[in-house]
Amino acid sequence: MKIVKEAVAGTLESSDLLVKVAPLADDKVDLVIESEVMRQFGAQIRKVVEETLRQLGVRSGQIVIEDKGALDCAIRARVQTAVLRGAECKEMNWSALS
């Protein structure tokens, strides 16, 4: 899936996260994660995000995440929403999203 425009998903509220995606000229994923619980859960958050991006087939893009202590399921949902919006994707393949 290719990110073709800037997009945002989520909020800054507690237990949520804000995901911003933007196209990148280079063929790489530049992922930046900021979290209030970075020390305890930073590695876990990164793992969930990277897995979600891999599932979506994102190979290029700038992804910035502001996490406010969200559960894994919220992280997956927000990352997918931002990427699908940024890829202007209308056709969903639900089995690839779970």
Binding site: V8, G10, T11, L12, E13, S14, L18, K68
Partner: peptide, 14 residues
Amino acid sequence: GESLSLKLMSEVIH
């Protein structure tokens, strides 16, 4: 209170 301001700023970003 945090929550109102965070909602507000989230709306601004969107």
